[in-house]
Design a protein around this nucleic acid. Structure first.
Lengths: 234, 234
DNA sequence: GGTGTCGATTTGTGATCACAAAATGGCATG
DNA sequence: CATGCCATTTTGTGATCACAAATCGACACC
């Protein structure tokens, strides 16, 4: 039996040609990264139902790691398990949107200020590079790249805090509103986008906590407030 | 094969005598509830390693639902998956403690105020009943019951908000500090405990948002601030 | 007596399977 | 032509298995 199973297992592995680098939990990490990226970039749209077998086949893995990843993301409220067990990307509602906005305004300026002491001039230059790319994406209308870069900008700041509590909470929030924002950008385009990134960068350079808080707060309030009105018309 | 497996499956079921009521995901829910309760009541202590097979055997289920539950709780930062895949209850550090405290002070007064409009005089009476029991627990020194009731008190308020965003974040926070608090109570006893529950109840009765915020804020700051110093001596 | 090494055991991981519930679709009936 | 019903398919769930990595323990060697 053992030999037989080994033969079956090595067969698809040889076709894929990726025998090595199978460290602990590699498959699960791969699936996790794929789904998270899909949520952030809009591959998964609110209301879209995600099936275990479907994702497993798409990624060329067994249903097992997919099940665990879906459970994880459901626990983070990035996905929703319906009473019949089906998993889907939650729809956005006005109430939910307002709550996410409120939570972001409470937590993100706080963590940004906490991270400020760990942000060097080198970080400021990295932020500028990202922001330049963001400006390009707004012009070209590349909503997917915009979302990826905007995420990179904010989390370059937040991650500097080395937080193990606030940071996961904020990541959960981003996963909750990202799919919805993606659909909004798809509808209204990216031309109207404005941000307070340059103010934030200046605050980092000057190590000005108050200014950084204000920049992050305004960036969130304006960015989400601007597009939040869209959900009333939908 | 099918018949053979059915025989194998029905055998242990008949010994346990619980054929019915096997609705969707019942086993997983049972495991989930068991582990959550264990974390809240101190059955699981920081540093304690939790094994899949161990828990599965203890609860009389297969390793499968346990794996998913552990993944979920790890996603909520209630458990920690070490690089070798082992799962354990995270240790508390001064940094982590301070961050949890900060996050609670930001989120819980906010959600309490948001819930206030949904809190009726009947709720106030429920809160009073819980608080009476809490006072008894403080006297008798029943730390486990105290923690369960304190959780019930706060979440009776928070749950009234019908929040789908802030509430899960706060639940995650409680799961993070509960195991640690349990060990602290075990060391210093419950006699020194004080709370602002009566102020909170009065605020609910009067529908006074400012007073409720203040009561919740003070309850958290004093309750955790009082015991947080313990981690410096450990 | 301390230490390194090798074997046995424990444990997480990924895969496959059998089953039940739900969803889907076609078909017959009103 | 609409509608209710039934067979088929899809899908989630729980269980078991084979394997690999890690941990633990004993024994020999220095």
């Amino acid at each position: 039996m053992t030999v037989l199973r080994s033969a079956l297992k090595s067969a698809p592995a040889s076709t894929a040609g990726e025998l090595p680098a199978t460290s602990r939990g590699a498959t699960r990490d791969k699936v996790d990264a794929a789904v998270r990226a899909g949520l952030q970039t809009g591959r998964f749209v609110p209301g879209k139902s995600v099936t275990i077998r479907g994702l497993a086949a798409e990624l060329g893995v067994s249903p097992m790691p997919v099940r665990e990843v879906l459970q994880r993301l459901a626990a983070e409220n990035a996905l929703e398990v319906k009473p019949n067990g089906r998993v889907q990307v939650p729809d956005m509602t006005p109430d939910r949107f307002e709550e996410v906005l409120k939570a972001r305004l409470l937590l993100e300026p706080e963590l940004a200020e906490f991270a400020l002491a760990h942000l060097s001039p080198a970080h400021a230059r990295e932020l500028e590079a990202i922001d330049d790319e963001i400006d390009r994406c707004i012009i070209t209308g590349d909503a997917e790249a915009y979302m990826r870069l905007n995420h990179a900008f904010h989390f370059l700041i937040y991650r500097a805090s080395a937080s193990r509590v606030l940071l996961p909470l904020i990541e959960s929030l981003w996963l909750q509103f990202a799919p919805f924002m993606r659909t909004v950008y798809g509808r209204v385009g990216t031309a109207i986008l404005e941000d307070r990134h340059k103010e934030a960068i200046r605050a980092v350079e000057l190590q000005d906590a108050t200014a950084l808080r204000a920049a992050i707060h305004a960036d969130i309030a304006e960015g989400m407030g601007l597009l939040g009105k869209e959900i009333l018309s939908a």
